[in-house]
């Protein structure tokens, strides 16, 4: 297991390096500069600023410089927000986004798993069809439509929950539900399919032949095996939550990372765009890493394959 984990960490670092490199060169390909719109600056001033930020250096020098800073955890400073370091900007905004994303992922996984298990155990009954309808709605209705709908019903009409802003737990409920809809739908569908397949396998028949009871078989034999493939889709779903939060944060006026990211793109704020991209990628790679580790914990075949027999 240790060797497997170390191997994953090395892969993680390699992926991170490739993403950092791609981000850098893609940014350089973008037309425009954060300084062009500033009409008040004279050409001399622009040259001075370019010189200060090292933007006149040849590309390879800039690249090495950038990688060196990155290794130190320095993402540069913003051109727009009073020269404040990008790390600080991200740090100020990450709290709300992380809480929202985490809540949505947890809620989505738990509800999704429960729905999926019920649908599989009571398959071809009213429970199963109900779960299917929920899943179809969750996949086909975009989160922002659902969000607006909830704001109108729960916030405006019934006045149960605050419509927007981020000032306490009750403010997090609606955006969390809106973001988790897609996760619930996907996980429940996947879980249902996997569990049904596992329930039809030979080892479940053998467990029955041993005299195990129905619930005992599901808990001891079926769930763990059905979870293995389900775990893999948590990575992509986490990405979905991250991108979804860009929109949801706007709708609920949440001061999160997504909102700042969108703004920095429209202002051509190089360092913030690169910094946030790198940050999002790092987060995503980390989630995949966690998923890989979970995979190893659940499936002995993977755990042992990496280590010695």
């Amino acid at each position: 297991m240790l060797r497997y984990t170390l191997q994953r960490i090395v892969y993680m670092l390699i992926t991170m390096f490739i993403i950092a490199t791609l981000t850098f060169f893609l940014m350089k390909l973008l037309p425009g500069s954060p300084l062009k719109s500033q009409d008040k600056l004279t050409p001399e001033q622009i040259t001075i600023i370019n010189e200060k930020y090292g933007l006149n250096d040849p590309l390879p020098v800039q690249y090495v410089h950038y990688l060196g800073n990155l290794a130190k955890g320095d993402l540069g400073s913003s051109f727009q927000y009073d020269n404040r370091p990008v790390t600080e900007l991200i740090g100020n905004r990450i709290g709300a986004s992380a809480q929202l994303g985490f809540q949505a992922l947890i809620l989505g996984s738990i509800v999704g798993l429960i729905l999926g298990i019920i649908a599989a155990i009571r398959h071809n009954t009213i429970f199963d069809y109900g779960a299917t309808v929920l899943a179809v709605l969750g996949i086909s209705i975009p989160s922002f439509v659902f969000a607006g709908f909830m704001q109108y019903i729960l916030g405006v009409k019934l006045q149960l929950l605050p419509v927007a802003l981020w000032e306490g737990f009750s403010y997090t409920i609606m955006p969390t539900i809106a973001l988790s809809g897609f996760v619930i739908a996907n996980i429940s569908r996947f879980m249902r399919t996997e569990l049904l397949e596992v329930m039809g396998s030979d080892y479940i028949m053998l467990a029955k032949a041993k005299g195990m009871s129905g619930t005992g078989i599901i808990i001891k034999h079926a769930l763990r095996n059905a979870l293995i493939p389900v775990i893999t889709i948590i990575g992509p779903l986490a990405v979905n939550i991250m991108t979804g939060s860009l929109v949801i944060e706007q709708i609920f006026a949440i001061p999160g990372l997504g909102e700042q990211f969108v703004k920095s793109i429209s202002m051509n704020d190089y360092t913030v765009i690169m910094g946030t991209t790198i940050f999002y990628s790092a987060l995503f790679i980390f989630i995949i890493f966690v998923v890989d580790i979970l995979y190893g914990v659940i499936d002995p075949r993977i755990r042992v394959a990496g280590g010695k027999k």
Binding site: D202, Y203, A209, K210, G211, K220, H221, R224, N225, P300
Partner: peptide, 28 residues
């Protein structure tokens, strides 16, 4: 009943299946 059968399966009547590659739980 199913409950009574569970007491007989594995205890009084046991079974061996065709394919050993699939009849054991891979995660146990």
């Amino acid at each position: 009943s199913e409950k009574e059968m569970q007491k007989i399966r594995g205890k009084d009547i046991a079974m061996i299946f065709q394919d050993p590659m699939t009849s054991l739980n891979p995660t146990m």
